[in-house]
């Protein structure tokens, strides 16, 4: 199985770059190639100016990697894990304490506790501290917020922003589209191919399809009827609304309203809306689908 196909992108130094796509899109594979854990069958990649194949030893010194699955020693304490990673990177906790201070201070009261007894949020903070302890130039975070509660997610992104502001380049992957706008630039990835690479603002701005939010009492029938509406381009559920785009300019809200009324819908709402990243993703992945 091919996990990645024809991927080209560049991350600028000091950027907070998001790799966004659904499960199975190839995000982890891409990260594993960039962190020298896997060899790509073809193509080249460089991290911090070093080739991932030829200079893998130097890359390992220069990057921090936090895998999607928590992978620190459960039977060692918080302190011991941090010491261990500091030592094998040839440094000490004291030397780079400034960098992790904000994060580590929150788990410091539990530093004697074994990792197995920590909460999910604390484990994550420790994992981040361990990935940072050698002061990496580039930090790779593979789905750090998957399975994390909304408050901790918010907190985690704040930490990332602060880290990023100290000059560390951060690559983060996530399946959550709403995290896209927190990045400087993003790449949307789907089935091993990049759909677009740009800043979230530009991606949204370049999206020309007019988007309408439609709601009615019977959502299920509404989707069905919208899909039957002549000239529809895309119809998908998005929270309490149905996001609808039309294939040509020959569209008016009134005509759609009359059509839906004729179908017997009640409480019809049709509002023109600004497209979000998820809308763009849906549109682009659909376009990709029709091309193949």
């Amino acid at each position: 199985m091919q996990a990645l196909r024809d991927i080209t992108f560049e991350v600028k130094p000091g950027e907070l770059f998001g790799l966004i796509g659904p499960d199975g899109a190839g995000k982890t594979t891409l990260f594993r190639i960039l962190t020298t854990l896997l060899f790509a069958d073809e193509g080249t990649a460089s991290v911090a100016g070093m080739d991932v194949v030829g200079d893998y030893r130097d890359i390992r010194k220069a990057v921090g990697y936090m895998p999607g699955r928590f992978s620190l020693y459960q039977d060692l304490s918080v302190e011991e894990n941090l010491d261990f990673f500091a030592t094998i990177f040839g440094t000490t906790v004291e030397e780079n304490y400034d960098l992790i201070k904000d994060i580590y201070i929150q788990i410091e009261p539990f530093k004697k506790r074994r990792v197995v007894a920590l909460s999910g949020g604390m484990k994550q903070k420790l994992a981040l501290s361990c990935a940072l302890i050698h002061k990496p130039k580039v930090l790779f975070l593979d789905e750090p917020t998957t399975g994390v509660d909304p408050v901790s997610r918010r907190e985690f992104w704040d930490m990332l922003k602060r880290l990023n502001s100290t000059g560390i380049t951060v690559l983060v992957s996530t399946p959550y589209m709403d995290e896209a706008e927190l990045c400087n630039r993003i790449a949307l990835i789907q089935e091993g191919e990049l759909l677009v690479v740009d800043s979230p603002e530009n991606i949204v701005a370049n999206h020309t399809d007019s988007l309408y939010k439609v709601a009615a009492k019977n959502t299920y029938m509404l989707i069905k009827d919208l899909k039957d509406f002549k000239g529809n381009k895309s119809v998908y559920a998005f929270g309490e609304f149905i996001h609808y785009t039309h294939s040509n300019s020959d569209f008016s809200e009134e005509r759609l309203g009359e059509y839906l009324e004729a179908k017997g819908h009640e409480d019809i709402k049709i509002v023109k809306a600004r497209a979000g990243i998820e809308d763009v993703f849906m549109a682009l992945s659909e376009k990709k689908g029709t091309e193949v």
Binding site: T35, T36, L37, R57, R60, K61, V63, Y65, P67, S71, L72, Y73, F85, I88, F89, G90, C130
Partner: peptide, 9 residues
């Protein structure tokens, strides 16, 4: 943890 170890020098 082996994966974590493998990205270290």
């Amino acid at each position: 943890t082996l994966e974590q170890i493998n990205v270290t020098p």
